[in-house]
Design a protein around this nucleic acid. Structure first.
Lengths: 140, 140
DNA sequence: GTATATACTTGTATCATACAATTAAATTCC
DNA sequence: GGAATTTAATTGTATGATACAAGTATATAC
């Protein structure tokens, strides 16, 4: 790929990481970190910490703490695996779904306001490229 | 903007933030956090912590610690402002420039490998949209 | 039935960050 | 010109997200 484009992506990616961090720091009903966890449980169904850790690219100890915290808040419930006394499934609860949807909506509202002068085409394009980029990162 | 596009951007942005975090955790000569600081000093010249904090969207206390750490490593030097006894300029040193460039190159190499099957056009497009997105975030 | 592997949790450490308190210098306002 | 206020920066303290290592309990293999 063209060097200039690479350099742009490289720098802007660093800038973005910083900006996203400061941007999301104020919608704090939900632990920011738990968003993807709940999303995962909601979109691909219950699973145990090992699978979650894999999907989320996190250490299992981190996920274990996240699930414990989510359980404590009533957003997920911990179901023992009948086939294996060591393992559990975490299942998102109705309250968890509600929280997830509210948090998502808050993010969407904010984003919509930010991007209010972007064209449909730019938005679609950006969304697709971001998705592709993530896919590329995920697979390697 | 089209709702579906917004939703894609919203979700993929969260995924990206996570992926970028795990991706960059292994090129650790330079504190990951210091990269943008050195970049800023190198591209827009010396300045004090307040201005840096503004440009980097960080608290001045955070920047103060970052500059102290960079100074300790010899990547920046701290020059008293002759006009104001309270303030300083931080200036990037030759060593700092060298480190910055090495770190940047490592990131570029990694990115190049990741994106080796992307077309020039996609890359350019993505770079431009990322830049525009960051600009949008930066300004609000 | 002992040894090993596996699923998960808990202990400990680190990093990046923010907010609050502090210090020291500059500015303002009688 | 000196007291009150503002400003630039640092330092104290706390937190959140993370990883790695050690521990616990259960399952599997030989």
């Amino acid at each position: 790929m063209n060097m200039h484009a690479l350099e742009t992506i490289e720098l802007e990616m660093a800038v973005l990481a910083r900006l996203v961090k400061s941007m999301t720091s104020d919608l704090r009903n939900l632990d920011k970190s738990a968003y993807l966890l709940l999303h995962q449980l909601s979109s691909e169904g219950s699973s145990g910490v090992k699978i979650l850790a894999n999907k989320l690219h996190l250490d299992i100890s981190t996920v274990s703490r996240q699930t414990a915290s989510m359980e404590q808040k009533g957003y997920v419930c911990k179901v023992p695996d009948p086939k294996d006394g060591r393992s559990y499934f975490y299942q998102i609860t109705d309250l968890g779904l509600k929280e997830l949807s509210q948090y998502k909506q808050a993010r969407l509202d904010k984003l919509e306001e930010l991007l209010n002068d972007w064209s449909d085409e730019e938005g679609q394009n950006f969304g697709q490229l971001l998705k592709k980029f993530n896919q590329t990162l995920m697979d390697k």
